[in-house]
């Protein structure tokens, strides 16, 4: 690991895993506003640094997604798209999906998948 990468690792909000050309982002912490904003920065940096062609955000551990978190996730996906990278969200809990749909919130620019395997299949087809 070189020095530059070491420095960015320290600012990481969520540890990520590189999988083929994809970056797996498993969210296992509470998404407060500050965290979700830092996560956005981290993802954009990692796309740039690691030449990632697809991002998979695993939200199976996230039990509340409200309108601002939704907005930031969509915004991140839009930015990633501009960088030539698709964002897939997988593992959204059924009650979270129900709440979002009842609120009329749509995850713009985001592809949704049921599982990690599903997400990889979708990304493979998009290439």
């Amino acid at each position: 690991m070189d020095k530059k990468e070491g420095a960015t690792m320290k600012n990481k909000v969520v540890p990520t895993i590189k999988l083929y050309d994809y970056l797996l982002v498993p969210i296992q912490i509470e998404l407060d506003d500050n965290t979700v904003e830092r996560l956005q920065m981290q993802i954009l940096h990692e796309i740039h640094e690691k030449e990632v062609r697809g991002i998979i955000i695993d939200v199976s551990m996230v039990d509340v997604i409200d309108s601002y978190i939704s907005f930031v996730l969509s915004e991140t996906a839009g930015m990633a798209k501009a960088m030539g990278c698709y964002v897939v969200i997988c593992g959204i809990q059924p009650q979270v999906a129900l709440t979002l749909s009842q609120m009329g919130i749509k995850l713009k620019d985001i592809i949704t998948a049921q599982s990690l395997e599903d997400a990889i299949n979708i990304l493979d087809k998009l290439e």
Partner: peptide
């Protein structure tokens, strides 16, 4: 600026 404006409307539906 960075918002959907769906907070209050959403709460009302929930």
């Amino acid at each position: 600026e960075r918002s959907l404006g769906l907070g209050l409307a959403g709460i009302r539906r929930l």
